[in-house]
Design a protein around this nucleic acid. Structure first.
Lengths: 325, 325
DNA sequence: CTGAAAGCGCTTACAG
DNA sequence: CTGAAAGCGCTTACAG
């Protein structure tokens, strides 16, 4: 790679002059300017961003990092959008790190080497041995959709989401309710069901039939919904269940399909409010993913101005009921 | 910010020793090592990644950039995933730039300052005045979902996608066909319809009724599908149309909804194959977005080893028909 | 095991 | 308008 010295020699000037041309300084005689420009083109010169930053004393990189567990999860994409729309207004860059269980260690390593201006960690509980890595991270660190003790955290009230779903179903006078979920769900999902069940217990105890499906994250949606469809039909056939709460909208789509094979009208509610759900008039609980990202980004920007307030701020966002039927 | 000099002074050693501790070099006496480490902690020291890179002569930043028009578009997310899965294996970072018409200029400016190892431009025709900016970009540059003359480009055969849709509908012996699209679509979308119409003309000319909806990108899906639903019902009522080709799966969802109000069975096909379409058994044309990203990333990695072959490579990926009914 | 010194590729007062 | 020189914060042979 050509450097400023090569250009200077080629153009017969000093490196100071070359640098001035680089800065588009007007204090360079037009002929000199042209000569330097010409030399740059001949040598295919690109200035080193790194050297420029060092010389300019740009200490922080004006780049934010985002650690995201799964790029294809629509909810995470919503969070990402919220962060993006807010950060972008500030003219900063975003480095995206997608993490798999296998790549955790190497990714954390790279994150550290980046001198980021700040880091968002989305839905990602830290393992004990990883705590140390992040303790050495001195830029602001914000956890989203996950409470990390000792760090600023933003999360959604999943318990409340479950309660809202229960309230909705109860208003339709069910004699029993079917719960259709996923085996081995992470805690936030489980909380929805806890909120749901406790609300039912308190207000109007009635039989709850639970079905937990075994789902592989790499299945196409079709198999999710097919399993949910079968579970719905089964609960109706066995126990006459006509009211359903689904762990997620995708599972609820299985309920929509099941309706065809069930003579009576089914009342159902999903969870997430992914974009397609509006198309199919699915009543569901809206997760404020975009808002979560937006609030997180705003908090980040304020932390940069005024670092580490104690105790670390926590913000809880409320889900909302979207009735579509 | 503390520098290596501050640490050296505090610990009573030379900067060379501090640097050795930073490198975790074993050639440092344990007591000295501990002293330096202690000083670092006291001063909250973080090494400057920029200075390290300059000293290490890391010229390229091991970071790839991705220019993406719209983070919330699922098809782009698919491409992103394809790129990500491939690039990540190589331990590189990804800088994400989301672009809006207003931010084009500033984003391009920032992209240039990054000394990226390579840049992916997704679905983004360059304006004439922008060509120059990219001509000064000497790392490999790949255009995805968009043919940019003079640059490596990967794209999908939209014409073929239209033909496949036509072939499918013709196999159901239609007497007329409804086309439901979007007003002011970009060229790739239009190509689908061209391929479709030409195929019909050639094989089995019959009446085509076209409806172009006026859609705002910020509408919720619901209004897309509602408009498509009405258009479907209208074409059935006015002309008895029972076979439909929709510009996109989201529009086709409107067709699915319209079925309820139409006494006869409707045959329809969408375009995109977004994940939820499998849940609703929508027959559609699959766009190989993930593969596009994957092939693009592979091409990128090979261009880095062996820059600018002439002519710039072009790769066309074929869509496939997914029959689900 | 440790330090003095040169170098990474740039910027920018300062002097002319 | 231009050049010599110091400096940005590190690394790393070299000598001891």
């Amino acid at each position: 790679m050509a450097t400023i010295y090569d250009i200077a020699k080629r153009a017969g000037v000093s490196i100071a002059t070359v640098s001035r041309v680089l800065q588009k300084s007007s204090k360079v005689k037009p002929e000199t300017y042209a000569k330097v420009l010409h030399a740059m083109q001949e040598l295919n010169y690109t200035p080193s961003a790194i050297a420029q930053r060092l010389a300019n004393k740009e200490i922080t990189s004006s780049t934010f990092g985002i650690l995201i567990p799964d790029i294809s999860n629509l909810f995470f994409i919503e969070i990402l959008r919220g962060i993006y729309d807010t950060i972008r207004l500030q003219e900063n860059n975003i480095l995206l790190f997608s993490i798999t269980p296998q790549s955790r260690a190497t990714v954390f390593d790279r994150v550290q080497k980046e001198n980021l201006q700040g880091l968002f960690v989305i839905s990602f509980p830290l393992l004990p041995e990883e705590q140390d890595v992040f303790r050495q991270f001195f830029s602001p660190l914000i956890f989203l959709e996950n409470i990390q003790p000792g760090y600023p955290s933003l999360f959604i009230n999943n318990y409340k989401g479950g309660e809202l779903a229960a309230e909705y179903l109860l208003s339709h006078h069910p004699s029993s309710i079917g719960l259709i979920g996923e085996k081995g769900s992470p805690f936030p999902q489980i909380e929805r069901f806890i909120g749901f069940k406790e609300y039912i217990q308190k207000r109007h105890p009635l039989p709850l039939y639970e079905e937990y499906l075994t789902i592989d994250a790499h299945f196409p949606y079709e198999s999710y919904t097919e399993m949910a469809r079968e579970a719905t039909i089964k609960l109706y056939a066995q126990y006459g269940v006509k009211h359903f709460f689904f762990y997620s909208d995708v599972l609820a789509y299985g309920g929509i399909k099941a309706q065809k094979d069930i003579p009576e009208k089914i009342i159902m509610i999903g969870y997430d409010d992914i974009p397609t759900s509006s198309a199919f008039h699915l009543t569901t609980i809206h997760q404020p993913g975009y808002e979560l990202g937006k609030k997180g980004a705003e908090l980040m920007l304020s932390l940069i101005k005024n670092p580490s307030p104690t105790p670390p701020p926590r913000l809880c966002l409320e889900p909302t009921l979207i009735v579509r039927d």
